[in-house]
Write a protein that binds this DNA or RNA. Structure first.
Lengths: 401, 401
DNA sequence: CTTATTAAGTCAATTGTCTTGACTTATTTG
DNA sequence: CAAATAAGTCAAGACAATTGACTTAATAAG
């Protein structure tokens, strides 16, 4: 019996896993509910007062939470609410887009401290990598200037770029995304910055941002429809970001709009790329965002006709997402100019009847999320924070670090 | 500060959570890899030999694992492999279909011990509930006759029926599924049997079955396309069944086949319902399964024309699933007669090019799973087993029981 | 054939973390 | 001012994993 096949198994856990989880649960409770007393935390987490006291002491010593003024609220000893300390941790987020890269520094609660962007030189990573590293360094030094000892509290670097990953790019590739795909980005960033690095696609990053500080805050099942140069979905399933087997979950842009005839990917119709084509403008022009915004505000006829078309496809997408994921809400977020995004969300009503038409619904089926060119970078930065502090199955297991 | 709003938080954990998790991890490792020695388990789970020894002792005492003969494999003391004891636990599965109900008893490793089916009287649950309870009781007593003390080892009752749940049924409803939807099924089953009961839709049940003993065994990301009277998808995401916010995730049958024009739900074209309509036969006839099977084997022209149409829609579905979920594989399973399912899987090739075309792929993109009218009942029974013994985040937390 | 080496598994003590129950503190109510 | 109530602490205890030395049983090497 030459038994060399690897044994596959989930990892076990031990006391430290327990403790790590409980710490995360405390932080999560404070993030979701605002300041809470130790007694509140004990009730909410089903741990004992004593355990909570010990953990809160630890977190306070680590500079992650702090006590507020005691509150009298009836009989009994006044309670001492604790809250998260924003300066308790920082993370850097990096967005690599087709012709621009953005870096951002955020704190524990998602405040943006500093940010910077740079145009990416043509030619892909061969020259772009250096630009990116410089950009990260700039943001990092600015952060260090703003906050003493920020370096020691940097929990990681999150990167986001358009997906899909691990697939040969076929067809035209004006922005050298194929080259970026092949480039050892994670290694370059890790060695270049000395930080832990993770990569996700831009839709997933947006979902992470919406979950930390946006419309998906506190929701365990939400889908973010990211309308950017392409279109994708970021999936919050069961309280965690879902990435699929190869990090490509949510690539709804590839979904085909009909089963027969000449199948058109959603992306060819509902995406900024299709809008640019419709308007016959150059997407590489740095002024497109403002231009589209203004055209939208001016009720431009070509924009309107595109919206009319796109809305049909977006309604279809929302219906599809609701049927397949059964989420609490669908959020439109990401790279579209704000005025356009608003118009789209308005124009979507009425939505197609779906399984999501529930009688006692309180959260809207479809809503507008962040419309900010920085949303992806913010989400990229939110990822390391989330990995470091949010409760998750993986964090309990022994093989996570 | 009248603070009566509920505080939402994840629950903490303690020693028992740790221990429960580690027990589950052991069982899971044995299920996935076959018999393993304590030393193997220690390496695989990253726990110490000593811890593994203790846990295995416990599991052995509980009758869940047992030692096999020692194996000499080189230097050193021979190892003693342990394996799961099938008779260590049992569960009952119940399928409520449109005109028939099936009950099944399975053991810890998914062996079917006994099963029975009964036609459901017309009129929905008012008369059907009694039939179902009698059916469960029959299977339960047969199980007790086969295995001494099976009652004490029954971990629960799993029920499966067509979804979606919590939605008004509109349109025609020949099988009173609306009445079943409103009926307090869980309560009736729980009080009628004294067992813990959970409900899922039939596609989810199939996925659970495929994961325990079928094509999804050992996979963490798999989607089961369930072709039955309707069509749905059972989702294994991140190693666990995903049900969405309201238990309706995977209702792909409602997905629309085109974004514009007159949108047709997938279900209207790719489902046995559509086949029956195409063949102009009565789906309530208990002989349909055999009839369709025979027609398929006889290369019937009407079947072939339906297949030709359906395959286009199924290709679209697989492409959609791959784009959105990025799974390791897609499995066709469930209620279609075996010959038909085989023909469909063959006819699906070549699949539409998708993100799932990876260079070093070993698991097929699309494959045939269980084609057995009992698959849904089996999956229903697998669910309590999985809940009782598989590692999961929920099992670690304090509020799970 | 003897000894070294290797690996599986056990024993007993230790450590880390949560729990328990009694106690202290601070406030409101009557 | 005493009783009631709630927050929070203290110290001991319980539980489960870890540690390191030890035992057992096999093969390999000289």
């Amino acid at each position: 019996m030459n038994d060399t096949r690897p044994i596959r198994a989930k990892s076990g856990t031990n006391h430290e896993g327990t403790s790590a989880h409980n710490r995360r649960v405390m932080m999560d409770a404070l993030r979701m509910n605002g300041p809470l007393s130790r007694a509140d935390l004990a009730r909410a987490t089903k741990l004992t007062k004593q355990t909570v006291s010990n953990i809160i002491d630890e977190l306070e010593q680590d500079g992650l939470v702090t006590a507020q003024e005691a509150i009298r609220k009836g009989r009994g000893q006044p309670s001492t609410p604790f809250r998260l300390v924003p300066e308790g941790a920082f993370a850097i987020g990096l967005q690599i887009d087709r012709h621009v890269s953005r870096a951002i520094a955020v704190d524990l609660v998602g405040n943006v401290l500093t940010r910077a962007e740079a145009n990416l030189p043509p030619g892909g990573p061969s020259r772009g990598a250096a630009v990116i590293l410089k950009l990260i360094d700039k943001v990092r030094r600015e952060l260090a200037g703003l906050v003493a000892q920020s370096e020691g509290r940097l929990v990681g670097l999150g990167a986001a770029m358009p997906g899909p990953f691990g697939v040969e790019v076929t067809g035209d590739d004006p922005w050298m995304m194929a080259a970026w795909q092949k480039f050892p980005l994670l290694e370059t960033l890790a060695t270049g910055t000395g930080l832990g690095v993770r990569l996700q696609n831009d839709a997933a990053a947006c979902a992470t941002a919406e979950r930390m500080v946006g419309a998906a805050h506190g929701l365990d099942h939400a889908v973010c429809l990211y309308l950017g140069y392409g279109i994708g979905a970021g999936l919050i399933l069961g309280g965690e970001l879902y990435s699929g087997a190869h990090g490509n979950a949510g690539e709804i842009g590839m979904a085909l709009l009909s089963a027969s005839g000449s199948p058109t990917p959603l992306e060819h119709r509902a995406s900024l790329a299709s809008l640019y084509q419709h308007l016959a403008i150059d997407p590489a022009d740095p002024g497109v965002y403002a231009m589209v915004n203004e055209l939208t505000l001016n009720n431009d006829a070509r924009i309107n006709s595109w919206i009319e078309e796109a809305v049909m496809d977006l309604r279809w997408s929302v219906h599809l997402i609701e049927s397949i994921f059964d989420p609490q809400t669908v959020i439109l977020c990401g790279g579209a100019p704000e005025a356009l995004a608003r118009r789209l969300v308005e124009a979507m009503h009425p939505l197609s009847p779906s399984i999501a038409d529930r009688r006692h619904r309180v959260i809207p089926r479809f809503q507008l999320g962040m419309t900010d060119p920085w949303a992806v970078a913010l989400g990229a930065a939110a990822d390391p924070i989330s990995r470091a502090f949010d409760p998750s199955f993986a964090a309990i297991l022994k093989d996570s670090p």
